[in-house]
């Protein structure tokens, strides 16, 4: 059994009176592909944001990759995000005025120093070698999502977070993106946590947890 990369104890997040995440105990071993399912508002995005260092819990303990996220300062969390985590959003969120390769280089720039050759290679790896100089507006949804993947993995994160990465994609693109993620995971051996409400997408993972109203209600292991 691999080491535990994420460990939560009584993890809680509430916004005012609304409790988005009820005390949650969760362990994710290194290298696992975990799918998180639930209706909208079930707390699955909240969980992902907490694990990715984008948000702070209200209560409980949260250790990711040996770091206590509660103890980190704002800039500490930023460092954690750039060195440890790669995030793929449903809405892509690329910078509209930068080209594909520049969007990837931006992640390199915040991490350390930009390296154009490496950024190109990363885009070629996701099959966008011919779209390097295009701005996001000129790319299709699937292509944009692949730029996001290139950006997410450019800094060799230990943890890849996907917030409904295929939510806006048609079937064909979804399968392409999922295939790509699977391939990359095989090479880079990062841990994946993917939030989705699509049963088929969830099935790509090793394990699926179901959240409802901030409570973990069910857990099922896939057999690969």
């Amino acid at each position: 059994m691999a080491e535990t990369i994420i460990e939560t104890n009584g993890l809680t997040r509430s916004y005012g009176d609304i409790c988005a995440l009820k005390p949650l105990d969760l362990q994710v071993p290194e290298g696992e592909w975990l799918s998180v399912m639930g209706h909208s508002g079930s707390g699955k995005s909240t969980l992902m944001n907490l694990v990715g260092g984008l948000d702070r819990p209200s209560d409980g303990s949260l250790r990711v990759g040996g770091e206590d996220l509660l103890a980190l300062s704002e800039d500490g969390l930023a460092r954690f995000r750039r060195e440890f985590v790669g995030i793929i959003f449903q809405q892509h969120h690329l910078i509209p005025y930068l080209t594909a390769v520049e969007n990837v280089m931006m992640a390199q720039y915040f991490h350390s120093v930009p390296d154009e050759a490496e950024a190109r290679t990363a885009l070629e790896r996701v099959g966008l070698g011919h779209r390097l100089k295009n701005r996001p507006g000129e790319l299709s949804g699937g292509e944009q999502q692949r730029v996001c993947i290139a950006r997410a993995i450019i800094n060799s994160p230990k943890l890849l977070l996907g917030d409904e990465p295929t939510g806006n994609l048609d079937n064909k693109s979804t399968i392409m993106v999922m295939e790509l993620l699977k391939e990359l995971r095989a090479e880079e051996r990062f841990t994946v946590i993917m939030v989705t409400h699509n049963q088929e997408v969830a099935a790509w993972g090793d394990r699926t947890i179901y959240l409802d109203d901030g409570v973990l209600v069910r857990e099922e292991r896939m057999n690969s």
């Binding site: 991490h111 120093v113 490496e118």
Partner: peptide
Amino acid sequence: RQGAQRRKLLAAAI
């Protein structure tokens, strides 16, 4: 070999 690590060393040196 790993780009991220390489760049990080470089950034520290700079």
